[in-house]
Design a protein around this nucleic acid. Structure first.
Lengths: 204, 204
DNA sequence: CTAGAATGTGAGTAATTCTCAGTATCTGGC
DNA sequence: GCCAGATACTGAGAATTACTCACATTCTAG
């Protein structure tokens, strides 16, 4: 509500404390996933991490900060992987269809590879806190990359900024809503294929 | 997590209690919006509604149930309005462009008309609880309607079920992410126009 | 008018987040 | 090796909050 944005209260200096910090985050990830945000109490998290509740609050100013740290870790991973794919595609300079297929495929694969972590952060979280900021900044980042690809391929209509943003929003939502949970009788791969076709028609 | 789905504990029988029920919901809407889910305590909600905390728990088994009731009210309103538009479009049987423009426009208008309520339910909420179920069922509902329109217009590719689902996911996300919060220098109307163009290319 | 149903009350309980005064461990300079 | 100060850890308990329950009030039907 009030506190601006959760940031680790104190940075570990000795190795011992780095291990404590990691243990807490790991315990938080497990318990949030298993019990949900409300069900995972800070005391349980500290206990599972094998430290006292006081130690937890030495590194995380509040419960939300745990989620924020997990989100940051995950977003960093996602953005890193995706930027690599963007770089590859930029280097190879393939035609539109191949470009779309690679990019959409990469996003889908990333989501399918750790669906639980992703759901935790995407679904299970009171957004306003902190995670929303992370998501938004990641989307902005990705939209900028997509815009560059649109320019390279000479597609995207008159306002590439808007087109790129809309594409990112759409693809992200489709992955969450349809790839991770395909309609009856369809496989994730089929849904991805349908997404690629739609993207191609939008841009082709 | 555990409890199945929050349902009013007791239905109001006398008019007096109906007013109490309404006052509580109204207070909850205001405070959730202003203070967020965590910041709005049940005691504050009861106080603002002018009733005792006990009365609140007579009609709502827990805090989540307040959110669920608000979500239901809102979803009912949305679905009602949209079904009317679908019916109109079906009756008038306009060509593709006009159909898309009307439907996307209607969704955007609905969101723009009470952006705060919508954000509350869409962003500010721990999803797992109950609201997720509502959203999903609404999306399924809308996807079925869209599918019917695709059939009417003879578009949508080989698998209209998947196409319709993907369209609904995309448009919903775009409205939330780009229409309610347009990129710098663009108006909501411009974003909607861009969405319509993209949809038309997807289907045309 | 009255019995019983419906509605309303709010102090109190249990659970949870977070603090802080005190203890233990480490590190670098001598 | 030893000591001083920095770093790290502890856990009882303060503060907050969701929720209960025994009781009081108000309504309705006969």
């Amino acid at each position: 509500m009030d506190g601006p944005i959760s940031i680790p209260r104190k940075t570990p200096r000795q190795q011992r404390s780095q291990e404590t910090y990691d243990a807490i985050l790991e315990a938080a990830a497990q318990l949030f996933e298993r019990l949900g945000y409300a069900g995972a109490t800070t005391n349980k998290i500290a206990e599972r991490a094998g430290v006292s509740i006081g130690s937890l609050y030495q590194y995380f100013p509040n419960k939300d900060a745990l989620l924020y740290a997990l989100g940051e870790r995950h977003v960093r991973h996602l953005v890193g992987s995706l930027k690599a794919v963007f770089a590859e595609v930029s280097a190879d300079d393939p035609p539109l269809e191949e470009s779309v297929r690679r990019l959409v495929g990469a996003l889908a694969d990333l989501h399918l590879s750790e669906p639980r972590t992703h759901r935790l952060l995407y679904d299970q979280v009171p957004r306003p806190a902190a995670t929303a900021v992370q998501l938004r900044s990641m989307q902005a980042d990705m939209a900028a990359e997509v815009e560059r690809q649109l320019s390279r391929l000479g597609v995207g209509g008159p306002d590439r900024v808007v087109t790129a943003l809309l594409l990112v929003q759409a693809v992200e939502a489709q992955v969450h809503g349809a790839v991770l949970d395909p309609p009856p009788g369809r496989s994730a791969a089929e849904v991805v294929e349908a997404m690629v076709r739609l993207c191609l028609r939008m841009l082709g």
